[in-house]
Simulated scan of single mutants.
Amino acid sequence: MDRGREMTYFTYPSEIGELRIVEDEGYIVAVDLTGTESSEIQAMYIESAIVATAAEQLYEYLSGERLVFDLPLRPKGTEFQLAVWNALLAIPYGQTRSYRDIAVAIGNPKAVRAVGMANHHNPISFIIPCHRVIGANGSLVGYGGGLPLKKRLLDMEQSVVENGLFK
């Protein structure tokens, strides 16, 4: 990918671990916890304005002060993956959907396992809320950051909603 400019990234400490935010041509293309498998993206270590804005919004989200992200996103994936990730963006804060719900939402109800794989390959964690996808029986299944982090994020969102901090 030679566009005459390299992608940039910056890392930020947070209460859930070190966050890495990657930007390419003014778009957020990846957010992950350093040390995860998606941390292999090659980019220059520079804090761009959009990366700093993303970090600020992530901190607000993690402190329960932000329900919706307002960032330019450009996840890289197949047409199917992009459809799944767009469906994830439609899951409201504090709510969950099953893999089957997502498959139905993208018009492919038999693609439950493929939805799971697309969810697993979500490059923009937290902002594209893959943690809001659960098993059909309501169980917490599959999360790149680990099930304790998934539970923590869902519990935080539920607490914010239940306490009426945002309506």
Score class of each variant (00 low, 15 high):
residue 1 M to D: 09
residue 2 D to A: 14
residue 7 M to Y: 05
residue 10 F to E: 13
residue 10 F to T: 09
residue 14 S to W: 08
residue 17 G to H: 07
residue 18 E to R: 10
residue 19 L to Y: 03
residue 19 L to P: 00
residue 21 I to R: 08
residue 23 E to I: 09
residue 24 D to L: 13
residue 25 E to M: 15
residue 28 I to E: 07
residue 33 L to S: 03
residue 34 T to A: 02
residue 35 G to M: 12
residue 39 S to W: 14
residue 39 S to G: 14
residue 42 Q to P: 04
residue 42 Q to E: 12
residue 46 I to N: 07
residue 48 S to M: 09
residue 51 V to Q: 01
residue 52 A to V: 02
residue 55 A to P: 00
residue 56 E to K: 11
residue 56 E to I: 10
residue 56 E to P: 03
residue 58 L to H: 02
residue 60 E to W: 13
residue 61 Y to G: 04
residue 62 L to G: 07
residue 62 L to W: 06
residue 64 G to Y: 06
residue 67 L to G: 09
residue 68 V to M: 10
residue 69 F to H: 08
residue 69 F to V: 01
residue 70 D to V: 13
residue 74 R to V: 05
residue 75 P to I: 03
residue 75 P to E: 02
residue 77 G to M: 05
residue 80 F to K: 00
residue 83 A to D: 11
residue 89 L to V: 03
residue 90 A to M: 13
residue 91 I to H: 05
residue 93 Y to K: 01
residue 94 G to Y: 04
residue 100 R to G: 06
residue 101 D to K: 00
residue 102 I to F: 04
residue 104 V to C: 01
residue 109 P to K: 05
residue 110 K to T: 13
residue 111 A to P: 00
residue 112 V to G: 02
residue 115 V to W: 00
residue 117 M to K: 14
residue 123 P to V: 11
residue 132 R to V: 09
residue 135 G to T: 05
residue 136 A to R: 12
residue 142 G to L: 08
residue 142 G to M: 10
residue 143 Y to C: 06
residue 143 Y to R: 04
residue 144 G to C: 06
residue 146 G to L: 05
residue 147 L to V: 09
residue 147 L to I: 15
residue 150 K to Y: 01
residue 152 R to G: 05
residue 152 R to C: 02
residue 153 L to P: 00
residue 154 L to H: 08
residue 157 E to D: 01
residue 158 Q to S: 15
residue 158 Q to C: 10
residue 162 E to H: 12
residue 163 N to S: 13
residue 165 L to K: 13
